[in-house]
Amino acid sequence: MTGEEFVPHSYGMQIETLGDAWYHDARLWMACAYGKREGLKTIRECWYRKDLDLETLICTRGRDFPLAMLATRLRCPRCGSRQIRVVWNFPTLDKRNSAAAGPKGRG
């Protein structure tokens, strides 16, 4: 996904802002999506990847900043590309979902 992001759901509630993500203890990282092809030319891929600090993003963008817009505001420091992927991980939601599924091994 370049310039777009998956917006997760939490039991019927959408997590739409940086403040919502903070509340759900989110972790995130960015990766440069530049490379492989530019038109008909093959170009060198940029492999830059970096964990992002959610607290710093909230301090600079505000709690109400939409998650869907975050990738459009980032740039790769290595190659300068604006083609960025942002990947979210919500460990608290993972724990809730695994607890709701019940113990493993029982059918």
Rank of each mutant, 00 (worst) to 15 (best):
M1S: 10
G3L: 02
G3D: 03
E4K: 13
E4L: 10
E5I: 02
E5M: 15
F6S: 08
F6G: 02
V7W: 07
P8N: 05
H9R: 08
Y11M: 06
Y11E: 11
I15F: 07
I15K: 07
I15S: 05
E16L: 14
E16P: 00
T17S: 09
L18P: 01
G19D: 03
H24L: 10
H24P: 00
H24M: 11
D25A: 08
A26G: 08
R27E: 14
R27N: 09
L28G: 01
L28P: 01
W29R: 13
W29F: 06
A33S: 14
G35M: 09
G35K: 12
K36Q: 04
K36T: 01
R37M: 12
R37E: 08
R37Y: 13
E38R: 15
T42D: 06
I43T: 02
I43V: 12
E45K: 15
E45Y: 10
Y48V: 00
K50Q: 15
K50L: 08
L52T: 05
L54E: 13
L54T: 04
E55I: 05
E55P: 00
E55C: 02
E55D: 15
T56G: 03
T56H: 12
T56R: 12
T56S: 07
I58V: 11
I58R: 06
C59S: 08
G62Y: 06
G62R: 04
D64E: 14
F65T: 03
L67S: 00
A68K: 14
A68Y: 12
A71C: 09
A71Q: 09
T72A: 11
T72F: 02
T72Q: 14
R73W: 03
L74F: 14
P77M: 04
R78E: 04
S81M: 01
S81I: 01
R82D: 09
R85Q: 13
V87W: 04
V87S: 12
W88S: 00
W88G: 00
W88C: 01
F90E: 05
P91G: 11
T92H: 13
T92K: 15
K95Y: 12
R96P: 01
N97A: 11
N97M: 13
S98P: 00
S98K: 11
A99F: 07
A99H: 09
A99L: 12
A100Y: 13
A101D: 13
A101H: 13
K104I: 05
G105V: 02
R106F: 12
